[in-house]
Design a protein around this nucleic acid. Structure first.
Lengths: 207, 207, 207, 207
DNA sequence: CATGAATGAGCCTTCATTCAT
DNA sequence: TATGAATGAAGGCTCATTCAT
């Protein structure tokens, strides 16, 4: 049985609109994004967008929510802190997140959150509570456990966690900001692999 | 008798306006920023802004240019690559930049560049050419020299450079994005000190 | 049952707006005309005007173009110079143009061209090239032919042509300028009939 | 007693400003004229204009009044209707006015009156009452007298008067409107000489 | 008298949102 | 559902007018 060829009404219209909106918001920012552009990109008329989302702001929230979703699953998994050696945990996690960052429009969402945090404080709050706390918190907890086991050096675990993840975020920002104007891109998985290894073992050569 | 503090000098006006604009642009983003707000913040009427800047965009450029200035001096100095051990160089540099980031509105400018890169590509280009190339390039060159001397491990110098600097940028973004909604701030100098030390020597405890 | 007279058709809108704009521009001049007034006169909101014309200036050009249209047909016909006696040609032509001037808003357009020539030089150029050259030129050519046939006295044909047509233009200007403040109007066809007859035969009585 | 050499304050500042304003108003029209331009052209600061004229409109009135002055004298003289033959009167008058039109910025004033008649009705009224009635009226009266003496053919004297003067006005408009975009100018005295002669004697050759 | 910085009302233009079809 | 014409509330920018110096 074939999919009906004349099937025009898609039940996933909202998702299509959100996808289009994500691209436009990421490119232009919230205020500079035009509903027309979003509608055109989704293959609809401007008015049709309002059949699914009452306001531009509501659409924006949907975009951020949809942009968070893929990460949240990962982070939830992480929240159940591994018990193995920290090296294994962080290596796998960094590789996984680097792949996600490489293949999803996560970068755009991150830019949006950064750029519109002051205009939409709830946005920043939600991201902080959902993404950051679960993410950074889980890593920091794992670090603390590693320190307790004597596996890791002492030091501020939260700062260590940020140190470990920062290049991923910067790599994504780099891609969104400087690559379009000609800068050479970074290979995120490679970048993170080298970074994590260095963080774990040090950059200085030892005899 | 001192000069009356309320005495406004025409000469100071542009700088005052730029300062006000920097704050508003950083808070709201370019498109959402209102000339009224900027004028009010500078203690002027809306029309007066246009005595000094022909358009909102020109004012925006001035803001970014003025935001770059303090860094550029540093980066120029860096460009004359140190000859001493890399450890000394990067330690001093990180401390210096962390202090700058802690005490100047650099964060706002960075946010603007990230957020408006697509709307103002020249902006991203200038930042890339002036700030990034000089800054990251100088560090990468120093790393390469260290590797040649056998002082540092092999690996992609450009990626190492980004690894070293990323937490500073993320720390600034953190301050601008999450601290206003209640997240605990990072002490940038401390963060960078721990980060650089870790990068150099490794996080794992060694017997 | 007739078509409802209040039924607005998208197709008619541009012409309706141009018509309204012609009136307002003619009354106030380009700079003093307000888009609000034009929109109100056309029975639309201000924003709707911009669905059809991108700028005030573009609307202005459309008004001038539409104001030229009726004349151009006549002038094209004239360009194919008559071969009969000049008296017949000029008599018919003057009568025809006087009727047009009497019944169309040509006067307003003429005022606009005169008043805005310095602000919109292309406007003056187009009118000169399209209207004046074809119009005055054709008459001057006919005069020249008449002179060659010995039918008309010698003299500058271009100046004769202007002499013949000037009262029509002045009559129109009179109507637009002085009649609204109480001056008695001129009957353009009668004015031109007497003028042409006088030009042809002379004002002085002869024995 | 010599004129003080250090006399910087000119008592004719108002006249200078009016002269500058005449040029700018004539070029741009009332609404599009900028006080800055006028001030600059008069060699003053914008604020200084307001030492002499309370508003833009008042300045405009002054311009029109000053533009009328030279003509008014002539027309007053004309009002005392000549008693000689009409031919002599009209020939001298046309020559005189053509010279005035050729050498004074009268053209600009005429354009202003035409263009702003609807925005400043008093303007049109004053011109009609002062200039037109006295001017055209005097000519029409002379024509009537000539008809009564059997010197001139019968017909509407007011229309004859307009016929006689129209080319002068059109010639001035031509200069202001089309010459700046490349049209060949008319020599006004020559134009009027040929026109008056033709009006008096006819264009058609006679055996 | 003269300057020119400053003001603020007003207009062109944009765009989120509505609604008749 | 979908369209797209229409609305109207802003916002950027201009410029006549004021005023401290």
């Amino acid at each position: 049985m074939a999919t009906p060829k004349f099937r025009r009404r898609k039940t996933d219209r909202p998702a299509e609109i959100v996808e289009a909106a994500m691209a436009v918001f990421a490119e232009r920012g919230f205020a500079a994004a035009r509903i027309d552009q979003i509608a055109a990109r989704a293959g609809l008329s401007k008015g049709a967008v309002y059949l699914y989302f009452a306001t531009k702001e509501e659409l924006f929230h949907a975009v951020v929510a949809q942009g968070m979703a893929p990460n949240l699953a990962v982070l939830k998994a992480m929240a159940a802190t591994h018990s193995g050696p920290f090296r294994e945990l962080i290596t796998a996690l960094a590789a996984h997140l680097a792949r996600i960052a490489q293949t999803t429009p996560l970068g755009g969402v991150v830019k949006m959150v950064i750029g519109e945090a002051r205009n939409f404080p709830e946005l920043a709050r939600v991201w902080h509570d959902e993404v950051i706390t679960h993410g950074l918190g889980a890593i920091a907890a794992a670090i603390e456990a590693g320190q307790a086991r004597g596996e890791l050096k002492p030091g501020d675990p939260r700062a260590y966690a940020l140190s470990l993840m920062a290049p991923l975020l910067v790599g994504v920002i780099w891609r969104e900001t400087f690559v379009p104007v000609g800068a050479p891109p970074f290979d995120l998985p490679a970048l993170m692999a080298q970074h994590v290894e260095t963080m774990l073992h040090g950059l200085e050569a030892r005899p």
